[in-house]
Structure formats: C-alpha cells, structure tokens
Design a protein around this nucleic acid. Structure first.
Lengths: 212, 212
DNA sequence: CGGCCCTGACTGATCGTTCAGTCAGTCATA
DNA sequence: TATGACTGACTGAACGATCAGTCAGGGCCG
C-alpha cells in the first residue's frame, strides 16, 4: 500500500526491538535471538542487514543520537546569547531533547545513560556521535555563564550527569522524594535546568567573590 | 606463617578479580572463566564459595558498599548541622568515600556508576545496600540546606549523578576541559561539592525570592 | 530471468553450572 | 604416638544451553 516512503518495515522493527533489548542488560546482556523474536524476524535477517551485533548496536545509537543532536542544535541556535538568562536556554537545549519524543523514550534513555558510564565500545561510539556537539555546548556554556573553558567542560559533564541521574532510574527519585505522582517532562527539565544553572554559576563563584 | 587472621587468600583474590571483570562490560559481559583465570583458581571454586554468578556479583558490591557506607556515616555524624556551611560537609560526606580508598578504586567506581543506571538486578541491590543510608542523607540535605523533602530527594539524586559523571569516565572530562593534567581527588571533591551546593540552593531559590 | 528480502537449519565456540574425586589437615580413640 | 573417620578447600572434565554468525536456497517482483 502506502509503503512507498518506507525503507523497510522490518528494519525499523529490528531497530526498535534491538533498542528495547539493549536497554535491558546492556550490550552483552542482549541476545540476537531475543532481538529477532521481538522483531518477529529470523536472526539471520539481523546479520543480513547489519552484519554483526556491534554494528546493529551502533545503528541503534546513531538513529537516536542524530535526532537528538539535530534538535539540540536547533534549540541552541535559538538562544539569544546576549540575554542575562541565556544559560537557562543553553542548559535546556542540552537537556530537553533526550527527554522528548526525539529522545526515543525510556528505552533509549537507558542506553543513553549506559553510554556515558560505559567502556571502550561505548566510549568510541560517544566520541563519534556526541563529542562534536558536546564541544559546541562547552563553548556555549562558557560564553553564557561567563566562565573559563576549564569550568565549562566540567559544567557540561556534571550537567549531563544530573540529567542521567533523573532519567535512568524510574521510581527511585520519586521514592526518595516521598511522593507518589511522577514528575512531568516539563517539571524535570525545569528542575534540572535550575539545579545545573545554580551549580555552574557556583563553580567559579569563589574566584568572583574574592577578586582581591 | 602468619595467616592466622586471614580468612582465605583465594576469597579476596576472587572478589578482586570479579570486581575487575564486572567493571568491564558489566554483569553480563563478565565471564566466570575470565574471573577464575584472573584470580588464579578454577571456575568450580567460584561456585563452591558463592553458588551462582549472581551471588558473586552481590558479594562484590556488598564488600565495597559496606566500607563506603561506614565512612559516609562517620563523616555525616561529624558535620555540625548548625553551621552555615553544613551543607558542604553533608555533600562531601556523600561524595568523598566512593572516591577514596574505601571506594575500591576505579574498578568499583564503574560498577558503582552502573548500579545507579542499571536494571532490576542492580536496582534490587541498590535498594538493599544503599537506600537506607540514602534516606539519612536526604534528611540531612533537607536540614542543612533548609529545603523540603521533595527538593531534598531530588537534590540527593542529582548530586549522585554529578558524582557519577565525573568518576565513571576517565579522559572525557579532561578532554572536554582541554587540559592534560588529571584532577586530584581533593580537587574533584571540591568541585563536585561546589557544583552540588550551588545546584541545591538554586532548587528552591525561586520560592524564596518571591515570597509574595 | 536477475536481484533483493528473507528463512530454516546449521556451525563451532562459549556460557554458567555440576559432579566425582583428590588432597591437606583436624580430631577422637587407642 | 599411631590410626582411622571426617571435613573443607579445591580441581579437571564434562553437562546442556545458548551464543554470534554462516549458508544454501525459497519466494517475490520488476
């Protein structure tokens, strides 16, 4: 029927299934057989399309990182860097996309979190898919917050850590907060932004307050 | 000779080897054979002492978490909560132990980071080994920073995220900071503390500044 | 017919786990 | 002190299951 603009139904089914399986148990914990079963295809088809498990994993990450990076750059470009609150926009541009629709939901959020704390395979993937944009954000943070390259790099890392701590674990945050209702996406973005801004501005406050 | 007070050389060799292997590739990525080979014993001995791979994993985590929690409580008890800077002490009490000698070094640091973002197996382990102490810290943060339970729970989670972002990845932070030299342990504690305090105090600042 | 999508059946390797059995050392009895 | 029963620590070999990856061929469509 109307599959004229669809590359292949199975390809997206495979990527979705792989994303789901990789999000539980990580790379080593996911089996090709389980991915194939979830996608409703044979394991041979996975190898036909992607060759190896490694390449399939890479494609899963690339699909989401591309969408996230695109939205991040759009949001970052829209920030008026001369504003006093420019830093809020920069942080939100970094934090919102992984939480929104282009972020791919809870499943990829876990993979995303795993990428940050992962080993060589993940590190190489991050270098390829996220680092170029990361450097743009380090610059933007430095400019918006008026801090040095040193502190900006650290601020970027810590802001991402703040993001991960919230998205990776469902339940625990709410359990520690002692409330039943989940936070909405907008509330999460707002709180991370507030926390990160406070943290970033505090990073070099000592120097500012004591200019002796 | 003087092994009178040594439980067993092999048991600590196994735990050390398992910690190392689990830190690369996580639970599913580590093999019993590789652990046994690193420890210089047979795979059968792992099962003799621990039964299953799951239990071995649990013991690896428990050994370190016990030492970390002990030091955390000692540091927290030493904080004079009436001080204006009590929040610094609370944050440092939370952050320093995993970075120090009782934290077990880089190897366990990765496992520790993986625990926070992990799935069911890790979550159950965290609930058992870290949650009771976590609640104590949520209270302390609330008291020291003068914020509500809600914000304190979030502050705890985010502070841990800040910690993880720094300890999990060697190299990347420095790469983004554009400097060659590594940060010393004390510098790391100081910067995390500064960032987290700034973030925590910003969490409810909006309400404070507009008491209408 | 030629090319692409796709599968069932299969491979060798590796997985966690089990098991029968060895070995050194302890303890009680003689 | 010598001896036999007993125990905990430990191993080599093997278990069935599962792993990622291969391959020859079937079906469909231009």
């Amino acid at each position: 029927m109307h599959d004229s603009f669809v590359i292949s139904d199975n390809i997206v089914a495979i990527l979705d299934a792989a994303e789901q399986e990789f999000s539980l148990g990580g790379f080593a914990g996911a089996g090709m057989k389980a991915i194939a079963a979830r996608a409703g295809v044979s394991t041979a088809l996975l190898h036909y399309h992607y060759g190896t498990k490694d390449r399939l994993y890479q494609e899963v990450v690339r699909r989401r990182s591309q969408a996230i990076n695109e939205e991040r750059m759009n949001l970052l470009d829209a920030v008026r860097m001369s504003d006093a609150d420019a830093i809020d926009g920069v942080i939100a541009a970094l934090v919102r996309p992984p939480l929104g629709p282009s972020g791919g939901g809870r499943a990829y959020a876990r993979i995303f979190a795993g990428l940050i704390v992962g080993q060589e395979r993940d590190q190489a993937l991050v270098r390829e898919t996220y680092d170029p944009i990361a450097l743009r954000f380090v610059e933007a943070i430095g400019a918006a917050a008026g801090i040095g390259r040193d502190a900006a790099g650290l601020a970027y890392t810590m802001t991402l850590g703040t993001l991960i701590s919230v998205i990776a674990r469902d339940g625990r945050t709410e359990r520690l907060m002692g409330r039943d209702a989940l936070l909405t996406e907008e509330e999460i973005v707002a709180r991370i932004t507030r926390f990160a801004r406070g943290g970033i501005e505090a990073l070099e406050r000592r120097q500012e307050e004591r200019p002796d």
